[in-house]
């Protein structure tokens, strides 16, 4: 059997971890045991940058994370999931299939020999983004009153500053304590992670933001894939397709279960109207476009994707 190393930053019992194990199991079955896919969870083989370098090297065969981390090789790919531009996942997925987005993946393959397995965004994360806060956020104007936990990401910093939030740089593992001490009073997260990280214990208000949409392309070492017999390539593609369907189901189930369970524990869900927020962000996009900060054709590709849906 051919051993393939699958690296991820997620723990095995996280929703993502379950999807990855499902993929590994199915790949083994569908290839009649040819493909021995070993999942290395929780950054066991390294953090983001180190894993990508090993993917290029071939000591790791697959890595699944949000695609914008490919900006190591293709800086424009930080625009693969533009914040507050698409109100629905369908529109966003259409955008990721635009010629522009495809050209970014193409560049990653040319530069680093790394290519997504199957449909890039078939495996779902999230399924949507939420804002967890100590005080209720009922409209986007309330964002001006929060101190948001931030991570080193220039794009996210620019967006949340534009919306008027105060920002506090905190590592993900430090966030709980930061909320407890008041260093920050709000944090953004995929819905499916809210319960396991326990942030709601310190910040009992949750609102859906649809900040951006998340898919987990299975980035793989292209040469390793091309060297496989066709039968095993097909098995991997099929297993990936099934993992995509399983992930959509699992994330949706987790999110709805999460809401019911947390409400029972006294957490309040506020439904902030999103239209004014997205309208406000249009000025941000217009400014950045005028300043030449967006990739050429990006807004056009976004418009086309929205029109198609």
């Amino acid at each position: 059997a051919e051993t393939w190393r699958f690296a991820t930053k997620m723990p095995p019992d996280s929703p993502e971890g379950k999807v990855f194990q499902f993929f590994a199991d199915r790949a083994r079955e569908l290839s009649d045991g040819d493909m021995d896919v070993q999942v290395y969870p929780s950054e066991q083989l390294g953090k983001e940058a180190a894993v990508l370098e090993q993917l290029e090297l071939g000591t790791i065969n697959i890595y699944a994370e949000d695609a914008f981390f490919l900006q190591k090789w293709v800086p424009d790919i930080k625009w693969i999931a533009p914040p507050f531009l698409f109100q629905s996942r369908e529109e966003w997925v259409a955008y990721t299939n635009s010629d522009l987005a495809r050209s970014w993946f193409q560049q990653a393959e040319e530069i680093a020999g790394v290519r997504p397995l199957g449909e890039p965004m078939a495996v779902v994360r999230g399924p949507y983004r939420v804002l967890i806060s100590k005080a209720p956020v009922k409209g986007y104007e309330d964002i001006r009153d929060i101190t948001l936990r931030m991570y080193p990401d220039e794009l996210a910093i620019s967006v949340w500053k534009h919306l008027g939030a105060e920002l506090a740089m905190l590592a993900w593992t430090e966030t709980y304590q930061g909320l407890q001490s008041g260093l920050a009073n709000a944090v953004t997260s995929p819905a499916a992670l809210v319960e396991s990280m326990g942030f709601y214990e310190q910040a009992p208000y949750i609102t859906r933001t649809n900040e951006f949409w998340q898919g987990l392309p299975f980035m793989m070492n292209a040469a390793a894939f091309d060297a496989l017999p066709e039968k095993d390539q097909k098995a991997l593609l099929r297993a990936h397709e099934e993992a995509g369907a399983y992930s959509a189901e699992l994330m949706e189930e987790n999110a709805s279960k999460m809401r019911a369970e947390l409400e029972a524990r006294g957490v309040t869900f506020t439904d902030m109207p999103l239209d004014p927020l997205f309208a406000e962000m249009e000025t941000w996009y217009a400014e950045h476009d005028a300043a030449g900060a967006l990739p050429a054709g990006m807004l056009a590709a976004a418009e086309a994707a929205k029109a198609a849906k």
């Binding site: 993900w172 593992t173 709980y176 326990g198």
Partner: peptide, 13 residues
Amino acid sequence: LLIYAFGAQVSVE
């Protein structure tokens, strides 16, 4: 303790 809480998905508190 923080690293364990994150890795094992248990409440930090």
